[in-house]
Nucleic acid binder design. Structure first.
Length: 454
RNA sequence: GGCGCGUUCGUCUAUCGGCUAGGACACGGCCCUCUCAAGGCUGAAAGACGGGUUCGAUUCCCGUACGCGCUACCA
């Protein structure tokens, strides 16, 4: 039998990191086993659902690279979808729920009370076989001892989560339910419902929760909890995927830096552990660095351009090769893409628009520094090849002549060229900038206060 | 309160009864160095607690503590 799994988020206006991890585990499981990954939108709570909220989820999943084999094509519940088990929006599945409810009534498993429909729940403990947690024997709680029945349909006619979730999993032929551990206790209800329909429940796999660094439950407001923020900050999506994969799962060989295809081939449920994991943005950042430095150059440049644009930096006036070369000098820095504009923005500004903060000027562009820059400028104005190696050799030669350490030239030059004391390798950055821009930027500082020298 | 799940370095984890408890991130030191990084070398750092079972428990069982989840006409 072919594996069918699903991710069934409810559109709350954001995609929670825990939800993303649940989606990822489902997706990895499906891809590893050649199964089918279904996306179903649980938009039964019409009060807080909107296409915008659904769109956030679809975008988040697409950004992570979690493509679905069946599910919505657009955020519109009445729009196109892929797959023959739809609709994939619960708000459009009313007739399926009504039909299944009638079936329950016919079997004497459902009845009305106070305008709502109740399920006739077993009075016995329910054993939940779980692929990750093991066999869980769920005894009745004190309230359930008194009355184990629960609501299937509210008095306003809305079916509750337990009903729609089970009916959809049943109708959609879901074979494995991989979801957060917060659903473990509820699974007793789900199993009882499947049995009431006369079918065996799917296999269950409850994965441990993701907690805040302090061990508390992660909510929307917590740092790192919302996928949209990763997109805005400019993390490499494969780094986020890699990081999430390591929360609750680990590969047999201990290798942690894994690309998506490696994850697909290694992932399976038998190595998912049972204890909750705390979110650690430092480790995510480290993985982001490792993935970006290994990223295909073209893709790095493409992403870089996009985030420069997001930051309002227009690079359209520069040719492709220049933009690519410029961005690539920042690749080894492990920056978030959103920080690229601040780090490498100087490449794309006119010479006279390079801003030098007063602290930077005070620190690196004093009188002596400007004198030194004059010497460097004369050297660079000569026949030197404008490539990093030659620029370095020439700078060191000048430093030797002046009897100063190379740092007495590099930092002033860096400040003049970039406006900052932090940046890419000076020699490489000057190579990219080219002779004209470098001389132009140096001259601004040499000229000031020593106009007569030239 | 009831029911359930969990508990190895600060964090993520490995270990499926033999452990001098391994790796990664973070942290400290040294080296390298044009800034910031990176890199190299190196260091410190863990089995919640108490009982069992066993020749031997981190590993199995029980209890306690702590954490988390569920306990809705929320999903």
């Amino acid at each position: 039998m072919s594996i069918r799994v699903r991710f069934a988020p409810s559109p709350t206006g954001y995609l929670h990191i825990g939800g993303a991890r649940t989606a990822l585990f489902n997706w990895l499981f499906a891809r590893h086993h050649g199964g089918t990954f279904v996306l179903r939108i649980e938009d039964t709570d019409s009060a807080r659902n909107s296409q915008a909220a659904i769109d956030v989820i679809l975008r988040g999943l697409r950004w992570l690279g979690l493509d679905w084999d069946e599910g919505p094509g657009t955020p519109d519940p009445d729009g196109p979808s892929v797959g023959d088990r739809g609709p994939y929006f619960q708000s459009r599945r009313g007739e399926w729920y009504r039909r299944r409810l009638a079936e329950l009534r016919d079997r004497g498993m459902a009845y009305d009370r106070d305008g709502a429909v109740y399920f006739r729940m077993t009075h016995e403990a329910v054993t939940i076989p779980d692929l990750i947690v093991g066999e869980v024997r769920r005894e009745l709680t004190d309230r359930e001892q008194a009355d184990p029945d629960w609501v299937l349909v509210r008095s306003d006619g809305q079916p509750v989560f337990h009903l729609v979730n089970v009916v959809d999993d049943l109708e959609m032929g879901i074979t494995h339910v991989i979801r957060g551990e917060d659903h473990l206790s509820n699974t007793a209800k789900h199993i009882a419902l499947f049995r009431a329909f006369g079918v065996e429940p799917p296999r269950y796999a409850h994965i441990p929760l993701i907690l805040n660094p302090d061990g508390s439950k992660m909510s929307k407001r917590d740092k790192g909890a919302v996928v949209t923020n990763y997109i805005e900050d400019g993390y490499a999506p494969e780094a986020v995927v890699n990081y999430l994969s390591l929360l609750g799962w680990s590969p047999a060989d201990g290798k942690e830096l894994l690309g998506v295809s490696e994850l697909v081939s290694r992932f399976d449920l038998d190595r998912v552990n049972r204890s909750p994991a705390r979110f650690d943005d430092k480790k995510l950042a480290a993985l982001h660095f490792e993935h970006t430095r290994r990223m295909d150059e073209g893709r790095f440049v493409g992403m870089g351009r996009e985030y420069l644009g997001r930051a309002g930096l227009d690079v359209s006036g520069h040719d492709e090769g220049y933009v690519a070369a410029a961005l690539l000098t920042a690749r080894e820095k492990g920056l978030l893409f959103k920080d690229l504009a601040g780090f490498a923005g100087f490449y794309f500004k006119p010479d006279e628009a390079v801003q030098v903060a007063v602290e930077v000027e005070a620190k690196a562009l004093g009188e002596e520094a400007r004198r030194n820059l004059g010497a460097l400028m004369r050297a660079y104005g000569g026949g030197v090849d404008f490539v990093a190696g030659s620029l370095e050799a020439e700078l060191k030669r000048v430093a030797g002549e002046l009897g100063v350490k190379s740092g007495a030239l590099t930092q002033p030059a860096r400040a003049a060229c970039t406006g900052s004391l932090v940046g890419p390798s000076l020699y490489h950055l000057m190579e990219v900038l080219g002779r004209e821009r470098v001389l132009g930027r140096l001259s601004r500082w040499v000229a000031q206060g020593q106009g007569g020298e030239q």
